[in-house]
Every structure is written in structure tokens, then in C-alpha cells.
Amino acid sequence: MKAKRTRAAFFGLQYQLKPKLRIMKKILIIEDENILLDLLQKKLIQEGYEVDTARDGQEGLDRLDKNKPDLILLDIVMPRMGGFEVMERISKQKDLKKIPIIIISNSGQIVELDRAKELGVKDWLIKTDFDPQEVVDKVKKQIG
């Protein structure tokens, strides 16, 4: 809480100029559940990140090409294209495969976790077991 206030004070009036400063880390959230997407987006913007969103895997890949993020928050069960296919596509592209991925899902079976690990996923969060603040903490751990 304390850190947040400092940052808010630091940005102060410059809040509007944020995109031009280019000092903000970019996060892409790929999540089909609108409420969760909105909540995470709000929380991460509050924490001073630039947030891009996509509502399924296909849209996520399109966004990736246009606007390369510093970190991806990825859901697994989604329409059109699921999280695993997104990870497989990314792992085949040299310029994208170094982007850290954190899975946010409500499924979490051992077989899935093992496969995700093979695809280079950094962390796996079960949404019901975490608060938004804890998601932010995990993000910070990866990209600061």
C-alpha cells in the first residue's frame, strides 16, 4: 500500500503522459471472462503497468504481433483458441518465446502443470486461490 501511494504521488499530474514516457512495463492479459479481465486490468493499471487485453487465444496472438508485451497473463480454457495452443505458437517464434508467461486458470491438474512447465511457463495461478494483489505480486516477481 505504501509503495503504491509513493508511485501515485510520483506520477501525479504526469499520469496522462504515461504512454509517451515509455518507462512502463507492458502486460498482455488473455482471458475470456470479462469481469476477471476488467478487474485484473484495473488492478495492474493502478500498479503502474500498461495493459493490453484479448478475449481469446487468437485475439491474443494478433495483439502480440502488434504490441510486444513484457509479460503475458494467460487463461487456459477459452473459446476459439485455448491457452496451450497459444503457448505452443509462441514457443515457435524466436522473438516471442522469451516473454515470461503466467497462467491464470481454474483448471490445474498435474498433467497440465507438467506440460506448461515444458513450454516454459513461469508460474501457474488458480484464480479462486489468489487475490488480485497476489497476482500483482507474482507479476512483480517476474518483471519488477
Binding site: I35, L36, K42, K43, N106, K127, T128, D131
Partner: peptide, 14 residues
């Protein structure tokens, strides 16, 4: 069931 429950959890927490 977990998806709406996460939504409720997150909203309330925030």
C-alpha cells in the same frame, strides 16, 4: 463454478 467464485472473490477483495 470456480470462475464466478473467483470473480466474486476478486471484486470483494478489491
Amino acid at each position: 463454478l470456480r470462475t464466478p467464485l473467483s470473480a466474486i472473490k476478486w471484486i470483494l477483495r478489491m
